[in-house]
């Protein structure tokens, strides 16, 4: 009877510590000069030409490591991606897409213009994908990119 009760406790304890609680939130920020210093604040006063910084922050509030985190962010309509602005905390791989479906590195992204195939320009990207190998328990990590309102 005692032995059985202990087993239940162990099973309960074991099961309660093996989980991942991953969340992600997105922010859109714009530059603002405050006290002669440039800061990124919530985007509220935006006109054509304004540069917006999108920051997506992942958090793992669980007890085990999350792996192979793939963040896929469509570049919002009317926004033009700013070349080389996609970044991440730590190590990640970044690929892009010109159709929202197929992702690759910039040199392997092509578009057809006037019947001729050429390498896509950054402002023609439709989506960005970050792959982060791991996110430890109780850790957060961000990916970001800049885009300009057309």
């Amino acid at each position: 009877m005692k032995k059985g009760f202990l087993s239940i406790l162990l099973i309960f304890a074991f099961s309660s510590i093996v989980y991942a609680d991953v969340s992600i939130k997105s922010q859109s920020l714009q530059e603002k000069i405050i006290n002669k210093q440039t800061k990124w604040v919530k985007a509220t006063k935006v006109i054509p030409g304004t540069k917006i910084r999108y920051i997506n922050t992942m958090s793992n509030n669980g007890t085990v490591m999350a792996q192979n985190l793939v963040i896929t962010n469509a570049i919002p309509k009317h926004m033009l991606y700013v070349d080389k602005s996609a970044k991440c905390d730590g190590v990640c791989s970044i690929t892009y897409s010109v159709d929202g479906k197929a992702f690759d590195v910039p040199a392997k992204l092509f578009v057809t213009e006037n019947g001729k195939k050429r390498v896509a320009k950054a402002l023609e990207y439709k989506a960005i994908r970050w792959i982060v190998q791991t996110l430890d328990a109780n850790q957060s990590s961000s990916v970001q990119f800049d885009a300009t309102l057309e």
């Binding site: 991942a20 030409g49 085990v64 192979n68 963040i71 996110l135």
Partner: peptide, 22 residues
């Protein structure tokens, strides 16, 4: 050419895919 029309709502959407223990 003059830019996105005033009053347009611009929203960012994304998806996170991940694994735990494979």
């Amino acid at each position: 050419a003059a830019g996105t029309a005033a009053g347009t709502q611009i929203q960012n959407s994304l998806t996170l895919d991940y694994e735990v223990g494979g």
